[in-house]
Amino acid sequence: TIDDAFRAIERAIQAENEGRYREALKHFLDGGEMIVTAAEKEASQKVRNLLLHKGKEVLEWAEHLAEWILE
């Protein structure tokens, strides 16, 4: 659900702030994927587009974090 997705993102932010970057990455990926999944089930085109945009933002952040971890 969207609530689960945002809880995962909150955990990711907390982990990132505490320097637990790999854990943060996992939570960002989980949250982003949950948002995209919820968007695919959404009946309203406007809400679907907003959710897809937010999911994409979260997944892009996860990608940047992963690249930073690997440096």
Rank of each mutant, 00 (worst) to 15 (best):
L52N: 03
V36C: 13
F6H: 04
H64M: 12
K56L: 09
G32V: 15
L25A: 02
Y21W: 04
A38S: 08
E18I: 05
K56M: 07
Q45V: 08
E33F: 14
W68M: 06
D3V: 11
F6R: 05
G31N: 03
D4G: 04
W61R: 07
E57N: 06
I9C: 06
E71A: 12
L50V: 07
R7W: 04
G19L: 05
T1F: 13
A8V: 12
E67K: 13
G31T: 03
D4V: 08
R22M: 12
G19K: 08
M34P: 00
E40N: 10
W61F: 06
E57S: 05
K41F: 10
A24Q: 01
E33H: 14
A43N: 09
A8C: 12
I69R: 00
N49V: 05
R48T: 01
S44L: 12
T37F: 07
A12G: 15
D3A: 14
R22H: 11
L65Y: 03
R22D: 08
A39V: 12
K56S: 05
L70H: 08
F6M: 12
G55S: 05
E67T: 11
I69A: 01
R48D: 06
A39W: 08
F28D: 00
G19I: 03
G55I: 07
G32D: 01
K54N: 03
L70Q: 12
H64K: 14
A8G: 00
R20W: 04
E18S: 07
Y21L: 07
K54S: 04
D3I: 14
L65I: 11
N17G: 06
F6C: 12
L52R: 04
R48A: 08
V36A: 10
D30F: 12
E57I: 13
V58K: 01
R48M: 10
E63L: 10
A24K: 00
K54V: 15
I2F: 05
A5Y: 07
I2M: 06
G55Y: 15
L59C: 09
R11V: 08
R20M: 06
L29Y: 05
D30E: 13
T37L: 14
S44Q: 04
E67P: 01
E40Y: 15
R7F: 04
E42Y: 10
H27C: 09
E63P: 00
F6Q: 04
K26Q: 12
I9E: 00
A24H: 02
V47C: 13
T37W: 09
N17S: 13
I35W: 02
R48H: 09
A5Q: 01
N49A: 09
A8S: 06
I69Q: 01
E33W: 14
E40D: 06
F28P: 00
L29P: 00
K54H: 06
E16H: 14
E57C: 15
L65V: 03
A43D: 14
M34N: 02
H27E: 05
I2L: 14
D4I: 08
L50T: 09
V36S: 05
R7H: 07
G31P: 02
N49H: 08
A24N: 00
